[in-house]
Amino acid sequence: MGRILTIKDVEAAVRGGSVFACGGGGWAAHGRELGSMAVTIGRPELVSMDEVPDDAWIATAAAIGAPGGLTDWEMLGMDYVKAVQLVQDALGQPIHGLIIGQNGMSSTLNGWLPSAVLGTKVIDAVGDLRAHPTGDMGSLGLANSPQQMIQSAVGGKRASNSYIELLVRGATAKVSPILRKASDMSGGFIASCRNPVPASYVRSHAALGGISMALALGEAIIAAQGAGGSAVVDAICKQTGGSIIGSGKVVRNTLKYTNEAFDIGVIEVGAGTGKCVIHVMNEHMAVEDAHGKRIASYPDVITTLDTDGNPVSAGNVREGMEILIFHVHKNLIPLSSSVTDPSVYPQVEQALGINLSHYALAATTAAA
């Protein structure tokens, strides 16, 4: 049976989602707002893929943009609902449930409000367990598909007449950049609903159980909080099988917002032999040690934590701040077919100037 999500689950989703946000993935305050509204005005229901008929339509609820605090955006809860309605109307059939493209500070809760208002199920599956910079990276392997898809975007700063409603049809690779441009024009952060597909496709291509993993991690964090920061960090590591691979004072953060709605730059942590460099494109995508050796790389989970164990988004990492670099190897997490789609990497590799695909596309073996 499905699980009715409650106010207690909101905080757990935000806390766990914030770790899987990998330095991006929205805003904690926005997540709390979305979740609180959802469980107040309705009864959002989390269901596993086992409970969904093969022919049911499932779409992806997502927020698009660069939520690093560098832009003036406005997104209301009902923008997520409107985005789903636009796609449902265009599809001409009911959308049974929503998955999310990625976990994050707010994105873990992207499907909750439409569930409360429209009755769509919150599907316990994600396009990517961790957050990532492009929609293609959470598109369940559809990024290079010639198949016509439906995508919508809704949101924007009303006071500056930046509010946009958009519905597009076309191959994912052609229409996804349109939604990202709409995000930039609306103020840098916009709600979307995209790529309705049959449940049978989701079952074989998504990272299953991704929402309940975020909830379980959040519950572990909340349980450890009374014992202090090191207990929280230990709880995060124990729950995920992850570890701290670097720590120290932030030496520099070169993050800049681009008009493609990305935050791009590097974060340098520590000095001497303990130095680490984090490559950022909205999220933390790779870490190199003092010798330039890659020690973590997408789709691994890579998250900056403060000394109290709180995730710090890339845009909030400041020079002089003491941070920890948390890492979970890709072999310890469910991976979607997006991760093994070579077409999703060139745009990100070009923006960062590093290779990601060699590691991401290498066969998954037992973690060392």
Rank of each mutant, 00 (worst) to 15 (best):
L98E: 11
T40H: 15
S115D: 12
Q85K: 04
L91H: 15
G68Y: 00
L91Y: 01
A59N: 09
A66Y: 08
A159F: 07
V52F: 01
L91C: 05
T108G: 01
M137H: 14
A131F: 04
L86C: 06
G104P: 02
G156D: 12
I100D: 13
R43A: 04
D79G: 05
P133T: 00
T71K: 15
S145A: 02
G101N: 06
S152T: 10
P133F: 03
G101H: 13
G119K: 09
E51Y: 00
P53E: 13
A61W: 08
T40F: 08
V117M: 07
M78V: 00
R158A: 03
H96M: 11
E74G: 06
G156K: 09
H30A: 02
Q147T: 10
A63W: 02
I99K: 12
A63G: 15
P146A: 04
I95G: 09
P53R: 11
N110W: 03
Q85R: 13
M78N: 02
L98H: 00
D128P: 15
G92E: 10
P53W: 04
G119N: 12
D136R: 14
S107D: 13
D72S: 05
P133K: 10
G68W: 00
D55G: 02
S36F: 10
L118K: 14
M75N: 09
L70V: 04
G119F: 06
G31I: 13
M49N: 05
M137I: 08
D79C: 11
I99Q: 13
G111Y: 03
Q93F: 00
T40G: 02
M78D: 09
P44R: 00
D54I: 09
P114I: 08
W73H: 00
V126C: 11
L109M: 11
V117H: 00
S145L: 04
S115E: 11
R158C: 02
Q147M: 11
I64F: 00
L142N: 08
L86M: 01
W73C: 06
Q102F: 03
Q88P: 11
P146Y: 00
A38L: 13
Q102L: 07
L46P: 09
I58Y: 02
T120C: 08
G138Q: 14
G138V: 11
P94T: 07
D89K: 14
A131R: 09
M105R: 14
L86P: 04
S107I: 10
L86K: 04
A66K: 13
A159Y: 03
Y163W: 06
N144T: 07
G135P: 01
N103L: 13
A131Y: 02
Q88I: 07
